[in-house]
């Protein structure tokens, strides 16, 4: 790997950590819950990118699998939180849907 690319990767990783800190500030101070939700989602995305870059820094592409797993987990967590917002509980009754299906 050329030396320029190494420094570029390091700089990019550090810049992403700076972005993480910015998102953390929004997460801590965010006035509404939706701000926090968006901040967490964005934080997860930045973690995924950080992992991808870090794998190339240490020359071990195994970490890309973890980045994939992160992407899936981030999605599941966001869906769970949004369901919580929408229905106010995680176990949503299917009575409404059944009635609509029967109509």
């Amino acid at each position: 790997m050329p030396i320029f690319l190494e420094y570029f990767n390091l700089g990019a990783a550090f810049f992403i950590i700076v972005c993480m800190v910015l998102m953390l500030g929004r997460l801590l101070g965010g006035p509404t819950l939706y701000d926090r939700l968006l901040a967490v989602n964005s934080f997860g995305t930045k973690t995924i990118i950080f992992l991808c870059i870090f794998c190339f820094i240490i020359d071990r592409p195994d970490g890309l699998d973890i980045a994939l797993l992160y992407a899936l987990m981030n999605f599941i967590a966001t869906i769970a939180v949004l369901k919580f917002f929408n229905y106010r509980c995680l176990g949503v009754s299917l009575i409404k849907e059944q009635m609509e299906a029967e109509e």
Partner: peptide
Amino acid sequence: LFAIVMLQGVYSLVSAA
């Protein structure tokens, strides 16, 4: 409490990285 739950998710993300 909600922010704490979100922060715990962030904590585990960062610690895994």
